[in-house]
Nucleic acid binder design. Structure first.
Lengths: 200, 200
DNA sequence: TACATTTGCTTAACACTGTTAAATAATCTA
DNA sequence: TAGATTATTTAACAGTGTTAAGCAAATGTA
């Protein structure tokens, strides 16, 4: 009778162990290094038993993402509860969002799909990756009347531009189809807004 | 003598063929479906000969990314050349950037690391993914004094916020280390800017 | 022309990957 | 203790990236 419960508790425990092992591997070696056999190694079983807890590898990733969303939601809620005015709430929440992303890098990457596969090496191995930077900062420096292209001010402004555009792009690339016109308008507004803010 | 040239030209040709085949597969089946044997199938060779043209699979990805950056740079330059005033140049360039991203989705994904691996299914399979949305739009609607949480205005504002923050986060997650303080300030400025713009 | 050498390409193999089916070991039930 | 159930493993399949060995055709040399 009660032994059934104990067994169920044990099963639940190894389910948790699997997820913890997976996250541990991802934190140590990155998403692309995660494999069923490695998880099995960590929890001291062989690979096939994992399939008694999860349908497949994808299901494990999905569950990790799910927990990520729950954790993020919790921290957002806590941030929100610190204030009563919506303006303060918003600032506090987005800062919490930012903090969550860096406190849980791997989780965030999984949730919002940021591959470090080749991207990290690109900065070192691909000089061409700096071409867009060169072209655009030229205009920024001219507009701001600052000669030093590599000055912090220009760098910061470039990143501001890029963040907005890249953010919009990547969101739209994921759940595509969402009325392109509206997002185009958002983009245009954001860009002209930033341009105005740096025009002397 | 001249036959050497012909052979060199042929070799260059299959090098190009390999890259084209790779891109073709990626466009048809996505990055994760790309394999050396599939490339070999398309160019009608066996897998090992690819290694006479590229050191490994990573090198193929890197070269595709390189070409992506060149193409993007070219289109940015063309956009820039349309105007003389830096303000107009900037607007035109960022629109060109946006257009490039959607005209070359797969390339852009490779260059800036956006995995569609689980992300596309998440919207359907993970209801938890909407929790952050719920929490944040609550404050936005209160601030804007609009009751309907799912109205287009609020949706748009949410995406504006998210784009800025997510863009900054993902950029910082890739080439981390770049002075966190500065980016924190950029974030704060951007957020308070948007908040001001939607405060009645 | 005949032999030797280089080149182009393929087959075979290794160590991995996710996943499934069959075989075995451990446990519970009667 | 014998039988049934459950837990776990081993073996296998098809796929991955990658390397080494082999073969066959083209080339260079005498």
């Amino acid at each position: 009778m009660a032994s059934k419960d104990r067994i169920l508790r044990l099963k639940e425990e190894t389910r948790v162990n699997i997820l913890e092992a997976a996250l541990q591997i991802v934190k140590a070696e990155g998403w692309q290094a995660l494999s069923m056999r490695k998880i099995a190694d960590v929890i001291e079983y062989t690979a096939p038993i994992i399939y008694e807890y999860f349908a497949n590898k994808e299901a494990i990733l999905l569950e990790l993402n799910r927990q990520g969303y729950l954790k993020l939601a919790k921290q957002l809620q806590e941030a929100k509860d610190k204030h009563t005015s919506p303006a303060n709430q918003l600032e506090e929440m987005w800062l919490a969002y930012w903090n969550f992303a860096f406190a849980n890098k791997e989780l965030y990457q999984g949730m919002f799909g940021i591959t470090t596969s080749c991207a990290c090496k690109m900065v070192n191995e691909l000089p061409e990756a700096e071409l867009p930077w060169d072209i655009i900062t030229g205009s920024i420096s001219e507009l701001m009347k600052i000669d030093d292209i590599e000055s912090d001010v220009i760098c910061t402004k470039y990143y501001t531009f890029w963040s907005v555009v890249h953010g919009l792009v990547s969101i739209n690339l994921l759940d595509r189809g969402d009325s392109d016109k509206i997002n185009r308008q958002v983009l245009r507004d954001a860009i002209t807004g930033i341009i105005k803010s740096i025009t002397p």
